[in-house]
Design a protein around this nucleic acid. Sequence first.
DNA 1: CAATAGATCATCT
DNA 2: GATGATCTATTGC
Length: 210
Amino acid sequence: MKPADIAMHRQQKNALAHILASSRILDRLFYERPTVEVARDLLGKILIHGSTAGRIVETEAYLGEHDMAAHASHGVTPRTRVLFGPPGHAYVFLIYGMHYCLNLVAEPDGIPGCVLLRALEPLAGIDIMLRRRPQASSIHDLASGPGKLTRAMGITRRHNGMDVTQGELTVRALTGDSFFEVATGGRIGIRHCRDWPLRFFICGNPSVSR
DNA sequence: CAATAGATCATCT
DNA sequence: GATGATCTATTGC
């Protein structure tokens, strides 16, 4: 390993340690609220998986039976069972035969609703992410989309149904104050209910998808 | 740059 | 058997 690589490695390990020391894990009550609120409040939080971490900069809310764009609108099936279960769990599915999408289940047990994590700003384990996504044109391109995010973080169907309030995949809130402006827009990549303002993102953040 | 084709598979009809 | 909550490479201006 070259000196530059060693330095980068140490810096990244320090980055993760610093995040862990200055943040607190989100408990189940955070998720046990209206989906839109959860989607809005997840902005600025930190997603941690293994030694990779990133700040959530873009989310989308997917509701229940009236939201034709949501998987839950077609009722309970083996796949969507997680969406109707207790909050604070991961819902991971394969889309277009090649990309995984990571969602976090919201609402009380029995009521469907989830938040799609669309983009992250990489904070730690960037060397690992670069290895997983060699095509990335920049650091900010590493996780600037739902499929990119899961690939960069190493998330697969294996994580479907996992409890994100403990274990290997978690979301944390920084203890210090952080200020940013939130923008709202129509959701992306769907046919139904395109104009519903259920997409939230941090204004001006370079890791937000197009 | 913007537009578009192709890859590829679990899930549901 | 059709269909996506996508990404990338390639083409054409």
